[in-house]
Amino acid sequence: MNILRLGIWTALIFLLNSCLKEEPYQPSADFTPSLIVHAYICNDSNTMAWVSESSSILSKITPANNVDLSIKTGTSPIQNFVSSTDGHYTLINNATKPGDSFIFFCNHPRASFAISGMRPHLPNIPSIDTQSRLNPFVGGTLNFDLKIKDSAAIKNYYRLYVEKTVVEYIYDYKDILIDSQIVVNRIPIFGKEIAFIQNDYNKYNSEEILFSDASFNGVLEDFSFYTSDILRKTLKDRPLEVSVKVENLSRALYEFYNNRNAHIWQQKSIIQVPSSVSGNIDHVIGVVGSFSSFQKTFGLP
């Protein structure tokens, strides 16, 4: 009887599992490549840009090397980006400071443009504290209390995220520890404060929240948030520290991040109408944005 039952249940499971069937499909492609530019103007060592060309959906993406990228800040002379590989460009000794205006130049056979912007001021964060917290499905994790003082004169857009630095253990095929490496990853953060619920786009990505100063313009605002990440030693890794990062973004970058988070979520969703990501460069896909960032690091026991 048990064998019969086993047979019936196994057949049922087999049938239910076979519901997912993938079949090849060849879409009709009528596509003209465009220039793609992503430039993030920020602190010296982080200012970078990626340039590529879009490709048909079934083709490989082509990076664009040796493109002329440069930036002019105030009265400083024009600075050129240095090309590395895979369409990756960096700016050495960036002269752009928080609050400076700049003009970004790009020269490529497909498109040439210049776009101006202003690097936002550093976010004013009087304090960040932590405390332990019990979380469903996880147990004890960290809660963060953050105070942010907004500038009344300027409309500010913020991005908040937390990074975890861990020692990751490397095992061989016999599960014997052979090495370790330091890895930095973002961890999910959640909250019910206004910063989390003000912006609908925050539902698309739990690894960063984006918010404006609309509800606390010019005042000191404090809110708390928590992570669901396990901050305990496991067989896989040992956490060393967590860093809370707050960035003050240019509006273009804020909108671009929102759109991109929505788009990435929609790519994975079967129930959503997908949409393209909009940027701030005419006739070119991508964004030229700027930000200034604050960081506080907490060591973990």
Binding site: H38, W50, E53, S55, N185, G286
Partner: peptide
């Protein structure tokens, strides 16, 4: 119909459609 990569610090090859 097309795609490009929009790098993020976490995913330098993030594909956007």
């Amino acid at each position: 119909v097309g795609k490009y990569s929009s790098p993020t610090p976490q995913d330098p090859y993030r594909e956007i459609f």
